[in-house]
Measured scan of single mutants.
Amino acid sequence: NNDALSPAIRRLLAEHNLDASAIKGTGVGGRLTREDVEKHLAKA
């Protein structure tokens, strides 16, 4: 659900052409954090 993404996370996802649903969020309520996105990028 993109409504739960902060603007910074949306921008980071867009810059790397990532789909938020492909990344498991570890923030409050399962929200994506910058660390989640960076860890996903490091794996790729």
Rank of each mutant, 00 (worst) to 15 (best):
L12F: 07
N1V: 12
V37F: 04
L32F: 03
N17E: 05
E15F: 14
K43Y: 11
G27M: 02
L5M: 09
D36S: 00
T33K: 04
A44V: 15
E15S: 08
A20Y: 06
L32M: 05
K24V: 13
L41T: 03
S6C: 06
G29S: 06
E15T: 10
R31D: 05
D36T: 00
A44D: 11
A20E: 08
D36R: 00
R11S: 11
K24H: 10
E15V: 11
A44Q: 14
L18K: 01
H40C: 04
E35R: 11
K43T: 13
A8V: 08
S21A: 12
N1D: 15
K43V: 10
D3T: 12
G25D: 01
R11Q: 15
A14N: 08
A8D: 15
N2M: 12
L32R: 02
A14V: 07
N1Q: 14
A14I: 10
D3K: 09
K24F: 08
R31S: 13
E38H: 09
E15D: 09
L5H: 07
R10G: 07
N1P: 13
R34E: 10
L18G: 02
R31H: 08
G29D: 12
A8W: 08
A14W: 12
R11G: 09
D36M: 01
V37T: 01
R34P: 08
T33L: 07
G30D: 05
I9N: 01
G27C: 00
E38P: 00
T33S: 04
N2H: 13
L41C: 04
L41Y: 03
S6M: 06
G25A: 10
L13M: 05
T26Y: 02
K39M: 12
G30F: 02
A44I: 15
N2G: 12
G29M: 06
N17T: 04
P7N: 11
K39E: 11
L13N: 00
L5S: 04
K43I: 13
R34I: 15
P7G: 08
A8T: 08
D3W: 02
K43R: 11
I9E: 03
R31V: 13
A22T: 11
V37W: 02
G27L: 03
A42D: 07
G27D: 03
D19M: 09
P7C: 09
A20D: 04
L32P: 05
P7Y: 06
L13E: 00
R11M: 11
G29P: 02
H16E: 02
G29K: 06
I23F: 04
V37G: 01
S6E: 15
A22I: 09
L13C: 04
G30V: 01
R31Y: 06
L5K: 03
I23V: 08
K43D: 13
A14F: 10
L5V: 09
I9V: 11
A22E: 14
A14R: 13
R34M: 15
T33F: 01
D3M: 10
L32W: 04
N1C: 05
S21N: 12
D19Y: 06
R11C: 06
N17R: 07
D36A: 01
S6K: 04
R34T: 10
T33R: 06
I23H: 00
R10Y: 08
A14Q: 12
K39V: 08
A20N: 03
P7H: 11
A20S: 07
A4T: 12
N2E: 14
N2R: 09
D3N: 11
T26I: 03
R11V: 14
R34D: 08
A42K: 12
A44M: 15
R34Y: 15
N17Y: 06
R34F: 15
L32C: 00
D3P: 11
L12V: 06
L18F: 04
A8M: 07
L5G: 04
N1R: 03
E15R: 13
L32K: 02
D36I: 01
R34S: 07
E35D: 10
A8P: 06
E15P: 01
I9M: 06
V37Y: 03
G27T: 02
K24L: 12
K39D: 10
N17P: 01
L13V: 04
L12E: 04
T26E: 02
L5I: 13
E35M: 08
A20F: 06
R31Q: 12
A22R: 09
L5A: 06
A22V: 11
R10L: 15
N17I: 03
E15M: 15
N1L: 14
I23R: 00
E38G: 05
E35A: 12
S6V: 05
L12R: 04
D3V: 10
R34K: 13
P7R: 09
H16Y: 12
R11D: 15
R34Q: 13
A42S: 10
D3G: 11
L12P: 02
I23Q: 02
V28A: 13
T26A: 03
A4D: 15
A42G: 08
S21P: 03
T26K: 03
E38F: 14
I23S: 01
R10I: 15
K24M: 12
V28C: 06
L32I: 15
A22M: 14
A8S: 10
S21L: 07
A20G: 06
A22Q: 14
H16L: 09
T33N: 03
G25F: 02
K24A: 10
A44C: 06
K39F: 10
T26R: 03
R11Y: 13
L5T: 06
T26W: 03
A44F: 15
L18I: 13
V37N: 00
K24T: 13
K43S: 14
I9W: 06
V37D: 00
P7V: 10
E35G: 09
G30K: 03
T26V: 03
G25N: 02
A44S: 12
A22G: 06
K39H: 10
P7E: 15
A42Q: 13
K39I: 10
A44H: 13
R10D: 11
E35I: 08
V37P: 00
K24I: 12
T33I: 04
A22H: 10
I23T: 01
H16F: 11
E15Q: 15
L41K: 01
G30S: 04
R11L: 15
T33C: 03
A44K: 13
R31L: 11
L12M: 08
A22N: 11
R31K: 11
A4S: 12
K24N: 08
D36N: 02
I23Y: 01
H16N: 07
E15A: 14
D36W: 01
S21D: 13
L18M: 07
E15K: 15
I9Y: 04
L18D: 01
D19K: 09
R31P: 02
L12T: 03
G27P: 01
R11I: 12
G27Y: 01
E38W: 13
G29A: 07
R31F: 05
N17W: 05
R10E: 15
D36Y: 00
K39P: 04
G29I: 03
E35S: 09
E15H: 12
E35F: 10
R31E: 09
S6W: 08
S21K: 11
A42M: 13
L12G: 01
A44P: 13
G27Q: 02
N17F: 07
R11T: 12
L41D: 02
L5P: 06
A8R: 08
K24S: 08
G29E: 07
G25V: 04
A14E: 14
N17K: 09
G30Y: 02
K43E: 13
G29T: 03
G27R: 01
L5Q: 07
G30Q: 05
S6L: 07
L41A: 05
E35Y: 10
L32D: 00
S6F: 05
N2F: 06
S21C: 05
S21V: 07
A14H: 08
L18S: 02
A4C: 07
K24E: 10
R10F: 07
G25E: 01
D3L: 09
N2Y: 06
L13K: 00
K43P: 06
L5R: 03
A20R: 06
N17D: 09
V28M: 12
G25S: 05
G30R: 03
L41H: 06
H16G: 04
R10T: 09
S6R: 05
A20T: 05
L32S: 00
L13P: 00
T26C: 01
I9S: 01
N1A: 14
L13A: 01
E38C: 09
A4E: 15
A14G: 05
S6D: 15
K24G: 05
L12Q: 05
A4L: 13
H16Q: 03
A14P: 00
G29H: 07
L41I: 15
R34C: 04
H16T: 03
H16A: 06
G30I: 02
P7W: 05
A14M: 11
L18V: 09
A42H: 09
L41M: 06
S21M: 09
K43L: 15
T33P: 00
D36L: 01
A44W: 14
V28P: 15
T33Q: 04
L5W: 05
R11E: 15
G29V: 02
L18R: 00
L12I: 06
K43M: 14
D3F: 04
D36G: 00
D19W: 06
R34W: 15
A8N: 07
K39Y: 10
R11K: 15
I23L: 11
